[in-house]
Amino acid sequence: MSLSYLLEQTLNGVTLGGLYALLALGYTLVYGILLMINFAHSELFMLGGYVGLGVLKLLSDPATVKATGLGFLEPIQAFFMSGTVGFVALLVATFGISAIVVGILGMVIERFAYRPLRHAPRLAPLISAIGVSIFLQNAVLLWIDSKQLPYTRADGSAFVTAQTAFTIGTVHVSTMQVFIVVTSLVLLALLDTFVSKTRIGRAMRATSQDGEAAGLMGVNINSVIALAFFIGPALGAVAGVFNGMYYGSVKFNMGFVPGIKSFTAAVIGGIGNLRGAMLGGFLLGIIESLASGFVSNAYRDVIAFVVLILVLIFRPGGLLGEAVAEKV
């Protein structure tokens, strides 16, 4: 039990926490506005991983060009595979396209699976969400592959090679970890600023506090909800691409466990509270890593959910959640 081992596990935890935080925001954003748990969110995370893989293959895997006959991609690939500028552009394109595609899909799902049920009993959209989740999983299973796909080019080389960025004592910090942590922190900060400082962000908060009153202020509630259903899934897609790169593969059912964990993170932080979701994500990631490092890997999930239960017992509203008095 050396200090460097502790440091290593914490670092792994922070990395995992970044993923959880990105994913947890999607749950909390939607819950905050519609009081609904979007069970399809974990599938949007999964799809993010697949879209990202597709983009990476099209933009930087020569074998894909040969196999698909999309010859016009060759010069584009040459650009993306040359030097640092190309590499950065490749990453931006991958994350950007995946986020936009999945974000739009999130809006489509809201429009057709949830909006018609807006005034139905609260159970109805929940069931609809489970339906969407099952549909998306099976669509990928059927139309793409039932096996896991490696997050590499056809020749087996990784798109982003795992290098050691720097070392602290004897602890090696990989570029991937730095990349994940920095990107998630930047995205979280951007979202936080957007929601707390801008006019549209203020409209989102108003809608989550009292939708009808926000409508009376001239806020178009449907647009605000659609925006929440773009931002949440877009962040989830970024997490999905990270997940694929970090663990090296994607699979149709890869969303399930991270989905439940991030939902747990959102509840620990106080569901509906954005900063709570971020805090909960990092906390859960760190606790899980430490648990698997110092107790037993088999018990990591047990410990994660024990934390959830403890939080629910002692602070039912979550760490940053406010105790809301029941309205009469």
Binding site: R199, R202, A203, R205, Q209, M217, G218, V219, E322
Partner: peptide, 16 residues
Amino acid sequence: FPRMTVEENLNMGAFL
């Protein structure tokens, strides 16, 4: 809006 400041509430009134 209970979790917004007085000023933010007033700004919401001028949303449009």
